[in-house]
Simulated scan of single mutants.
Amino acid sequence: MRSLQDAIYNWLTIKVVMDARPEDESAQQTFQLFDEILKEDFQAENVRVEKDEIMYLVSVMQEGEDKKLRFPVELIDIMINQIEEEPEKYPNYDTELK
């Protein structure tokens, strides 16, 4: 990822999926990956998310500086909306079957 904004976008998109599907281990693992990228590659800390009707508002501390980013709800929620519209395409595989 080239920028903090890209990293936060990916992190937030999968966070929304993970929050909506807490049993989805793939979402949890993907979230952990993006969370590590934020921390290790971008030295991002204390990520806070607020949502209103139009935007996700993200605050993050990076190298001692508080940064704020905004993302349209429709942009972030596209993945979870797609999963909810066509759940048969996104099964949650039981990891105990491995």
Rank of each mutant, 00 (worst) to 15 (best):
A7D: 03
K68P: 03
D66V: 15
Q43G: 09
D41V: 08
A7V: 05
E63R: 09
T95H: 08
K15Y: 06
I83M: 04
V16N: 06
R21E: 08
D41Y: 07
Q32R: 15
E63P: 06
F31M: 07
R48H: 12
V58D: 00
N81M: 02
E63T: 09
L57K: 15
V16S: 03
M55G: 10
N10L: 14
K98Y: 15
Q28A: 10
E63G: 08
E40S: 09
W11Y: 09
G64P: 03
Y9V: 11
A20I: 11
D66T: 14
T30E: 11
Y9E: 10
D6W: 11
I37W: 06
E25R: 14
I78E: 10
L38R: 01
E85C: 02
I8Q: 05
D77I: 02
F34R: 04
P72W: 12
V16W: 01
L38K: 03
K67F: 06
L57W: 15
P91H: 05
Q62E: 10
Y56G: 00
L57E: 12
S3F: 07
E53I: 14
I78N: 08
V17S: 00
T95N: 10
N10S: 12
I14R: 05
K67M: 05
M61H: 13
I80N: 04
A44Y: 05
Q5E: 14
E53V: 12
S59G: 07
Y9M: 11
T30S: 05
R70S: 05
E74V: 10
W11D: 01
T95E: 10
N92P: 13
V73S: 01
Q82K: 11
D41H: 09
E40G: 06
K68F: 04
K51D: 07
L57Q: 15
K15C: 04
I80K: 04
K39C: 08
